[in-house]
Write a protein that binds this DNA or RNA. Structure first.
Ligand SMILES: NC(=O)c1ccc[n+]([C@@H]2O[C@H](COP(=O)([O-])OP(=O)(O)OC[C@H]3O[C@@H](n4cnc5c(N)ncnc54)[C@H](O)[C@@H]3O)[C@@H](O)[C@H]2O)c1
Ligand SMILES: NC(=O)c1ccc[n+]([C@@H]2O[C@H](COP(=O)([O-])OP(=O)(O)OC[C@H]3O[C@@H](n4cnc5c(N)ncnc54)[C@H](O)[C@@H]3O)[C@@H](O)[C@H]2O)c1
Lengths: 223, 223
DNA sequence: AGTTTCTCGATAGATTTTTCTCGATAATGG
DNA sequence: CCATTATCGAGAAAAATCTATCGAGAAACT
């Protein structure tokens, strides 16, 4: 089909389709569950049924992540899980910083099984003096003013951003200026960052938008 | 291209591509911001620049949502905003129920500007007696046992699910059995529901997976 | 042992989504 | 008034993604 001079451009280093990438965590969860039930072998058909995905798609996704299976048998549950975990970078946990200990930030700080997902929050910051002090799981909340100093000292590379939208860009700048190269952004705003920095927006309202527009459509049609 | 007997099947009633649907809320946010600055007219180029999207894509998205603009001028900011809001169903706010007043549920209950996004949480439920009573914004937390009764009485159609994964399916069943037809699910598990029920999963770990695998790839390559 | 059945892996086909190109239109500035 | 420029709208092309098909291997059953 496409015989330009240089195909295989996109598949440079981590050139996995993003939709695939977004499905991998779901596979991990299913595998953990099935492994917990003592299932040694697992097939794409099975995984697909659990998640409502097409088996062929599952197979393709797993292949892209580097998994290999055997005909009739499927994949070894444990091995497949480790392959995915390794691919996602979840086997060696990265330490992370969280800025903005409000409603959402507190919820994230309180979420225990985060290190299962490759991230451990080791420090938090807030500009509000009332938020300071030790928090859940012994994570300390520091005053925002100490962010540059501590960030440099601790060499944290992942930043979680849960401040109001107005403050997001300036906090983001502060993070990137002090060594953060990957940002998980919960503020509903597009951040502008240096070229080498990775930003992933957790856009809750995108999901809500899909939900409510589908609902609106269903109500128009249905009754 | 496709001259089957019945084309225009997919474009039945709400046949907008889902990626488009997911971008619409972002356009709303930008428009709100720009309108706040007194901007009467706005172009796709401008919106695209704010969000890092391709202008053509913005134009196509807006067209799909039913917006019309004028050459050289662009769109009327206010009118465009209302068009999108109307398309998303965010102009008439739906009342919603939240089940699971834990870390995440509390954060959502505490989020003031939800009604700007078409949803108002009017009741919450939890199986833990300690969580009962009045909560932020006067939302009452009821015991889980009263869910069927109150759900039927209040005729709520949107359910927000923030219970642990193990409990998610049973709570979901309870919701759908009592009139809920749209579920915003935060539990990391695939729900099975009757055919007419809409489920949107807010899969936080999908985003985190993309982030960490990109970071892992960058670290492998870069340094 | 032979047959059946289930599954992976690869390839090709279909569909969806994004990007590009073009002409028409309206404001702006000489 | 006319050239210029910015913009929408529509349609085509390109790219990405998803789905279907087929062959071969491995286990289970007869
Ligand atoms: N709570 C939710 O359910 C929810 C849902 C969707 C999106 N969000 C988004 O998440 C972000 C946080 O929401 P929230 O409800 O937790 O808000 P919040 O107001 O409860 O918390 C924000 C926190 O950030 C702190 N902060 C403000 N400016 C700061 C600065 N410059 N440096 C450091 N800390 C600063 C505040 O002191 C506060 O503790 C917002 O952008 C919001 O739009 C929240
Ligand atoms: N907190 C986070 O940052 C976070 C992040 C990602 C995903 N999640 C997911 O969101 C969900 C909630 O997380 P959380 O941290 O708020 O958990 P949590 O344990 O703090 O809260 C769960 C709440 O649900 C209630 N509950 C349990 N079973 C119930 C039942 N059958 N009926 C009614 N209520 C019941 C509990 O009493 C508790 O109040 C989980 O599925 C979790 O995996 C949370």
């Amino acid at each position: 089909m496409q015989n330009r001079t240089d195909t295989t451009r996109t598949i440079g280093e981590h050139g996995i389709p993003e939709p695939t990438l977004r499905r991998l965590p779901a596979y991990c969860q299913v595998l953990r569950r099935l492994a917990g039930r003592g299932l040694k072998q697992v097939s794409c058909t099975r995984i697909g049924r659990e998640l409502g995905f097409d088996p062929t798609q599952v197979r393709k996704d797993l292949a892209l992540a580097g998994a290999v299976g055997r005909p009739k048998v499927g994949y070894c549950t444990e091995e497949l899980y480790r392959t995915l975990e390794n691919f996602l970078g979840w086997n060696n946990v990265e330490e992370a910083v969280l800025v903005g200990v409000g409603h959402l930030g507190t919820a994230l700080l309180g979420y225990t099984p985060f290190d299962r997902y490759g991230v451990r929050i080791v420090a938090a910051f807030d500009s509000d003096p009332e938020k300071l002090g030790p928090h859940a799981h012994g994570v300390q909340v520091f005053p925002q003013t100490r962010l540059p100093e501590l960030l440099r000292r601790m060499k944290l590379r992942i930043g979680i951003l849960t401040v109001p939208a107005e403050a997001a860009q300036s906090v983001c700048d502060l993070m990137t200026a002090n060594g953060v190269i990957a940002i998980w952004n919960f503020a509903p705003i597009a951040l502008s960052v240096p070229a080498n920095v990775i930003v992933q927006n957790e856009d809750l309202f995108a999901t809500l938008g899909v939900l409510s527009s589908k609902l609106a459509a269903a109500l128009r049609t249905g009754s």
